[in-house]
Simulated scan of single mutants.
Amino acid sequence: MFRKAAGLLASMVVWSMSTAMAAETSLKQNLMTAADTKASGEYAFSQCRALTGQTFDTTKSTKKALIVGDSYACDFLNSMQENGYLRDYQIALRFIPYDCQTVAGDAAPKYIAAKDRSLCATPERADSLERAKAQMQEADVVIFASRWKPEIAAALPQTLHTLGLQPRQRVVVVGSKFFGKISVRQYLRMPANDLKKLENEVDPSEAKAINAVLAKGLGKEVLFVDPHNLVCGDDTSCPLFTDDVNLISYDGRHLTKEGARYMGKVLFQHSALGQM
C-alpha cells in the first residue's frame, strides 16, 4: 500500500514538473514569436495596408469611421479589430507617415523636413490632411491616432478647427504610447511571475508629456484617449507583458497581436470609446 502511494506521489511530481516545463517552453516560444520584428511588423501593418485608401459606400446607411494617422493608427486599427469593436461601422484609413505629419492650411510645408518633402508629396507613398479632408466630411466618426510630434500636438486644436469638421461628427484623438527598450534575451531568462510584474522606465517626453499637451489643448467636443495614462497610470514606467504573460510591444512602440488585443480592451473598456 505504501509503495503504491509513494509511486502515485512520484508520478504526480513528475507530471507536475512536466506540465510546468511544457508551460515554460510554450511561454518562451510565444515570446520569441512575438519579438520577431519581421513577423510582428507584418502583422502590425497588414490590415492597415488593406484599408488604406478604402472608400465609403455612401449609398449605405451604415455608420462610417475614418482613422487618420501614422503607424500608431495601424496599432489602433488592430486593437479595435482584435476585439471586434466598431464592427458595425464601415472602416477606412488614411495613412500619413510620421515624417509627413503636418497641420492643416498654408503653413503645412514648414512642418515637414526638407529631406522628407519628396516622400510626403507623393500620394502613392504618403497621404495628407488636405487629401483626406473630403473623406473626413463623409465620416460619422474621425479618429486621429499618431506618434505625435510635439509641435503637431500643440497645433492640433487649430488644425481640427481648420479642417472644418461638423458638430454632428464624433472626433476622437488617441494620444501617444511608448514601452521603452525591449530586451528579449533578458526576458527569456526570467520566470513568468516576474515577467507579469516587469515594467520599463520610459522617457516622459515620448508620450506622457505630449499627451498632457493634447489633453490641455483639445476642447470638450473632442474625445481624447490617453493610452499612456490608461496602461501605465500617472507614472513614467510601463508594463511590458499582459496578465497572461504575452509581450505587449515588439519594438517598444508597436503592438504585437496579443498586445493589440490587450490594448484594445484597455482603451475601449476604460474610456468613452466603449460608448461608440
Rank of each mutant, 00 (worst) to 15 (best):
Q47K: 12
E42H: 11
A39Y: 03
A132Q: 03
E206P: 02
Q90K: 08
A73R: 03
I210R: 09
D57F: 13
C232Y: 06
C48T: 00
H270F: 13
S249P: 05
W148N: 08
L165Y: 09
R117D: 01
T159F: 06
L8V: 07
S40A: 14
Q54G: 07
Q275K: 10
A10F: 15
C238N: 04
D243M: 15
S271D: 11
K63D: 05
I67M: 07
M136N: 06
E42A: 15
A10I: 08
K38V: 11
P204Y: 10
A108M: 10
Y85N: 02
E82F: 13
A114N: 11
R147N: 07
I248S: 00
D251C: 09
Q135H: 04
F179E: 04
G219W: 11
N211W: 11
A44S: 07
Y187K: 08
H161I: 04
E24V: 06
L51K: 01
K28Q: 09
G180I: 02
L218E: 10
L240A: 12
P97I: 14
H228C: 10
Q158N: 09
Y72P: 01
R168G: 14
A145L: 11
I152G: 07
E138V: 06
M276C: 03
A126E: 04
T52A: 13
A92Q: 04
A139E: 10
F56D: 02
D106Q: 13
M190E: 15
A154N: 05
R94W: 09
A10R: 10
Q29S: 15
E124H: 05
A65P: 00
